[in-house]
Each structure stands twice: as C-alpha cells, then as structure tokens.
Design a protein around this nucleic acid. Structure first.
Lengths: 217, 217
DNA sequence: ATATATTAAAGAAATAATTCTTTATTAAAA
DNA sequence: TTTTAATAAAGAATTATTTCTTTAATATAT
C-alpha cells in the first residue's frame, strides 16, 4: 500500500472490510431473490463461514442499522452496499495494452456488474489497433490524449508489458486518470493522490504454491 | 482465509510477506541482469518504496543471509526466492470453465513464469469442447475424472459460473486436487486441508471504487 | 592495524485488525 | 402487560503485522 494517505485515514474503511463487502452483497442478492426480507448477522456469518461480530462491524460501514431480534432488511442492505461500493453506477474506464490479458479483460464482461465499464482500449501495436473485442474498440495509443480531453474518465486498467508500465501510468495521470488498476508486475511510482490497486497474479501464485508446499510438509 | 490451520501455523510464513516476495524476485532479476552482484536491504527498500527492516524480515524466510556492509548476493537470493515460491518448478494445473475468463487465462501465458502450467481445460458446453487456446485443449468435463487418475495434478483454476462452482470444486477434491485458484464469487466450502486462493475481481473493484470515492471527498 | 561507517539480525514497541465480552434493545411468548 | 430470548452495538482483549530500536558484524578508509 502507499506509504502515506493520512488525510482522511480516520474515516477510511479498512481494506480487509472493503474486500469482504462484495461477498456480503452477492450473498444478500441471492437470498433476496428467494424472498427473504430480513436476515441476522449470525445467519450471514454461518452461511459465509465468518465471525458474526465481524459481519456486524463490516455492515456498519454502510450506515444501515439492524434491528435486534429481526436483523437487517435485505433490500435496504443490498442497496446500501451497492451504493457504498459504487457498483450501481457506471464508472467508465480506459484499458491500456490489448495483449492476452488485456483482450481477456475486454471479453470478460463481468466488470459491468462491478460498476466498471471499459469504454475504450489502447495499444501501440499496429496488429491490435482496430480490433473489436466484447464491444470495445482498440484504438491507437496516441488517441488517448485527445479522447481524455473530451471524456472525463477517472479509471484506467493497465495491462501493458512491464517495461512500459511506469511511462504509460504517468501519461494516464496527465490525462486526468485518478485510479489505476495495475495488472503489471511493476510497482508504480505516482503522486500520492493517485489510487493504485495492484493485482499481481504472481502474489496469488506465490501464496497458493507456498501453502501447497507447506501442506505437503 | 480459512478458519483453522493451526497445524504448522508457527512455521508458516505470513501472507503479507508471501505476497511481497514475487516483487522482490522480479526486482532482483532485473538488477541481476544489469550485472549487480550484491545489493543491500536499504537499497531494495528505496527502489521498492518500502521499509528496509521489512525487506530484511521478508527475505529472511528464504534462509539466505546477507553480509553487513555488502548486502545480499543477488544470484543466491533470486535462486532461493524461486525455490521458496515454487516458481522454478512446473506445477501442472487443470482449468475448469472455458468461458471468457477461462480462455483469457489460457491465452495468458505468463503463469508459466510463475510455475503454474495449465495442461488441460474442461467445460460442459459443446461449443467450447474441442477448442484450442494457447496450446491448451478444452476437453469434455467428464474426462476430468479419467485424466486425473493418470495424472497427479494438484492445482485447479476455477473459472466456472458461480452456480456450479461448489459442485465442481467438490469434484476436483475427489479427483485429488489439493489447491484451488478460485476466480468465481463463491466462497467454497471444502475440507480444511484444501488450499483455496480466492481472487475475486469484485474485491479489487470494491477497494478501487471506494478509495476513488474517498479521494473525491 | 585501527577506527569508522554501513548494514543485517534480533528484539521491542506501536499499529491495525479480529475476536471476545458486555450492554441495551426489541419482538415474541406467557 | 410482563417476561424472555435473540440480536445489534459498543467497547475490551487478543492476535497479527509493521515499524522502530538496539546490537553485532565487517568491509573500507585512514
């Protein structure tokens, strides 16, 4: 994580909590479809196999109050969670680097249910420019600068080769991007106010392989 | 994380450390290519923008010792990290669910540098069976049971729709799989000895969108 | 050869997150 | 209407992780 973001730290929701919230949302949507009106924290905890007090604490960040002996209103909670997470808005995003991973993410439509909509992709490679994946065009990288002037896109998904990641990230910041979803293995050096969310497959592989090793003694 | 894995907990490396190790490895490989023989923890810390004592603690898990006033031997460290993480081995994996995300991961060859090699993909959809992506065949799901008898595959990548994820995961466990890389939004209910590594895009989206919201006050 | 500055290693303190405990609320039952 | 049981909320204790501090080692310069 970034070294310093002390400004509104006190009001900031802990990352572990944030990471758990979508899980609650998916579960609540499921039970709501079955017609459940109210659900208690202990019930949620049992289903999701986590501590019931943790559930209460996590859900408290949405501002929704539960009633003793009744629990939470599922409709209210779902709505509040979507609102809190921003999943019910359309947050437009650029994607840079239309290689294997990039086109994969373009084809993977599910971001839209997560409130993120890739509206354009960019690449420097002639072979990739003009392609059309999942309803998204791959444009020439230089067009990024023109387009970002007209559109107010705050999110970028970075799927370039590692060696150009830093340069591209700086370009993106200059284009007004405020948050970068970084799929490269680079640790980007950007101004403090830019949100960088690193999602390195290598970290996941590391944990998986090591734990597998551990379990085999 | 799973509720209980107290068996060798004392010897177990903390997850945050594990997640940082690939970053060190990539950086060290880079400087090693430039001919750097020795590197100190403070130097690594400066480059990777993290605490130098943290670097020392993290690298200590590999068993490699640094020398005062000299630092660590880059060759030794790279080798030890690869060995420790399992990145220098070929860990074979099955992939289940050849949809958008599944085929994406098949095309995304980079797993191989992370020690994970998808050797076969499976799906129930007729249209997908027989496909060939990134050198990997999509086989009929039922063939999984035969194939797992002959091959000793311990890792599975789960990219099915959410509603079948639990059933498929149970099949996988019955086929001898010990670790599941779970890309679905389900929290799988499996025996304690099975390693489950959840990588839900929704959690990442949640953190990104929320932090973006926070920064906009 | 000696002193010095740099550094790794080990341990302590601080911080963050989770789990446990208590309290207060409230719907349902008597 | 009163009692009871279930539950959310608030706070305390525990645990895990990170940062800080001290100590010991050693290559380089004097």
């Amino acid at each position: 994580m970034s070294l310093k973001r002390k400004n509104n730290k006190s009001t900031q929701v802990p990352e572990p909590t944030l990471r758990r919230l979508p899980g609650y949302l998916f579960f609540l949507e499921k039970v709501r479809e079955k017609g459940v009106i109210n659900i208690s924290a202990p019930t949620i905890g049992k289903e999701l196999k986590c501590d019931p007090t943790q559930v209460v604490k996590d859900l408290a960040v949405t501002g929704i109050k539960g009633k003793p002996r009744v629990g939470y209103n599922t409709y209210e909670l779902c709505h509040a969670l979507e609102e809190f997470l921003g999943f019910n808005r359309v947050n437009e995003a650029f994607l840079i680097g239309a290689g294997n991973l990039g086109t994969a993410l373009m084809a993977y439509q599910e971001h839209q249910t997560l409130g993120i909509k890739i509206i354009a992709a960019f690449d420097v490679n002639e072979d990739k420019i003009g392609k059309h994946v999942g309803g998204i065009h791959v444009l020439e990288y230089n067009k990024l600068f023109h387009l970002s002037n007209r559109l107010d896109v705050k999110i970028a998904i970075l799927t370039t080769p590692n060696n150009v990641a830093q340069d591209v990230a700086e370009d993106l910041v200059n284009c007004g991007v405020k948050a970068i979803w970084n799929f490269t293995h680079c640790n980007l050096d950007l101004p403090d106010n830019i949100i960088v969310e690193d999602i390195s497959m290598s970290s996941f592989a590391a944990v998986l392989l090591r734990r597998l090793n551990d379990s085999e003694e």
